[in-house]
Design a protein around this nucleic acid. Structure first.
Lengths: 333, 333
DNA sequence: CTGAAAGCGCTTACAG
DNA sequence: CTGAAAGCGCTTACAG
């Protein structure tokens, strides 16, 4: 492995000088010297060692991205957004899948601390609380941004889940639905509780009472949406005519279960999702949903983190707009 | 930031001793001393600096994963597989999206060299050739594994695309189809050329000639499958009755274009894909395809890389099995 | 069983 | 404009 020393020797200068041309330092250097150094670097194929540099400068130009599962179609868009901005800004991204496991989250937190990442972006909930618990932020003062609302004091980049859920349910109400079920995310999720609030607000806005039998808890996974249908009144008096699922995956699971029971969507039961994952527009019927700007969430989170790393002030909360995406699963053609 | 020196002072021992307990070294240490050191580490919240360690040991326990685009549904499964094994083996993964851009690939290669990653996994083609060109492997001897067939001498983890494509087309032939079009990947892709070979072999196996009019080049993206339909004979003499697309995304694009033209799938035209992305089983009709074990490709690639990093011999090529996944887009119910 | 010291490959304050 | 030297935080061969 060729080092800065080799380059210095080869060019007949000191390592100080090599370091200066390497870093385009302000320090004046004669053009001739600079040329010699550049030539030596080229000839030797020198590539500076980032670890040595980090040790000096106390920065790694690396960030950690902690999420539940990249294979969940909600996340790739976020990851891509983060990565694009990171790359532009000269940062590298370490990907950490936690499956929302506390243990795995803690392990990653430790590794990220050891690697001295400059910052961390959290998404998918849960992890944040664990992290605060482990004194991750207090002790190390690692700059951190969270995608989604959370209970801590870290900068957040989010959408207004309550408002968006309310709009989604109002869409169903405006279509004449009155028995509207909701399949929620896990009770511990702020996202789920916000979306549930939106559901309640929408009903309250019409002076309607919430029927607890129409609220079924899921876990944001396809399977839980599928199974939720077992627990909902589908026929007879009190039967539902619409479902608002807290995310697309559960909505799609529910639609599948409904179709297997011979129920038409949206003819018998309208279904509304949340997220607008790519899948939503490919299935039949195409899923009406709330479009969450995932790529932009990633982009914005990384921009906020970069600001933080540059020592600048950042807003405690950045809220991006969602958009009601009405497709075929709520509208009878 | 607390360092090993602080711990040593706090515990009243030398940094040598602290380092020894930190690394569970073979070197004998008295239980009492060990306890004192452990206590000091705990009290001070000490977290060793990986950069300093890397500088000494000349290993970073970090690998780079280079792929075209994590937002393409083919890749998350691979990434997850790589990450799971990496995590178990104590490695961290840097994610690099190249969009198959040579420039972006080169940039990443440089960054990964600077960061002194222990190894690299390539997937998505193209990049490998660029990398060889930049002397990435020769100069730095960075252990590298490629997912997919390639022209270099690097260890590969792949499926047998030719065989699998042949089976897919034979499935169509066995259904009675004789005018079978194929929508290929880019001509430069080894994957695409292998799948095209399989198509040819299948036809040749029946003594049939290949009609060049039925071969349309795409680029593995949804849009190119959609547009390919414009260039195919859909009605009248010489019309096709089936399509074999080189991946699911293009197959789904083609299906959409066919449906917009009022053609039934599979009634008028059967469609076969390749990959078995999650989307394939959600669309209507469900897509018949070749199941590629993406997660296992990732797992296996990382296992091979870990072997390489452990200094052990690895097979030049590891081939995983595909499976014909017959669903609704080729079978009339 | 314990530790002093050299060294990994860089950056930079200081001196000239 | 140039460079000698200290130091970033670790590991480990060597000595005791």
């Amino acid at each position: 492995m060729v080092t800065i020393k080799d380059v210095a020797r080869h060019a007949g200068v000191s390592v100080t000088t090599v370091s200066r041309v390497l870093n385009n330092s302000q320090h004046p250097i004669s053009p001739a010297t600079k040329q010699r150094v550049l030539a030596a670097i080229e000839e030797l194929g020198f590539c500076p060692n980032a670890a040595a540099r980090s040790l000096q400068l106390n920065e790694t130009r690396t960030i950690g991205l902690i999420l539940p599962d990249i294979a969940n179609p909600y996340y790739p868009g976020i990851v891509r957004g983060v990565e694009d901005v990171a790359h532009e800004s000269g940062y590298t991204v370490i990907l950490c899948n936690t499956d929302r496991s506390r243990e795995r989250t803690q392990e990653y937190l430790r590794v990220l601390r050891e690697k001295r990442v400059d910052g961390v972006i959290f998404t998918g909930g849960g992890a944040v609380e664990d992290a605060s618990q482990s004194h991750f932020f207090d002790q190390e003062r690692i700059a951190t941004v969270v995608i989604g609302r959370h209970r801590g004091k870290l900068p957040a980049v989010q959408v207004n889940n309550t408002l968006a859920a309310r709009e989604a349910v109002e869409h169903l109400l405006s279509l004449g639905h009155r028995r509207i079920a909701t399949i929620t995310g896990p009770a511990t999720s702020t996202t789920a509780s916000d979306r549930l609030d939106g559901y309640r607000c929408a009903l309250a806005g019409r002076g309607m009472k919430v029927d607890p039998l129409l609220i079924v808890e899921g876990n944001f996974e396809f399977e839980s949406g599928y199974q939720a249908i077992d627990r909902l009144p589908l026929r007879g008096p009190g039967a539902i005519t619409a479902i608002f699922a807290h995310n697309d995956l559960m909505a799609i699971g529910a639609m599948k279960a409904l179709q297997e029971r011979g129920l038409q969507v949206p003819g018998d039961i309208a279904v509304m999702g949340f997220d607008n994952i790519p899948l939503a527009s490919f299935i039949t019927p195409q899923l009406s949903t709330v479009a969450v700007p995932v790529y932009d969430l990633g982009v914005t989170a990384m921009k906020v983190l970069a600001e933080l790393l540059a020592g600048r002030e950042v807003p405690p909360v950045t809220t991006l707009a969602t958009k009601l995406q009405v497709r075929d699963s709520t509208i009878i053609k």
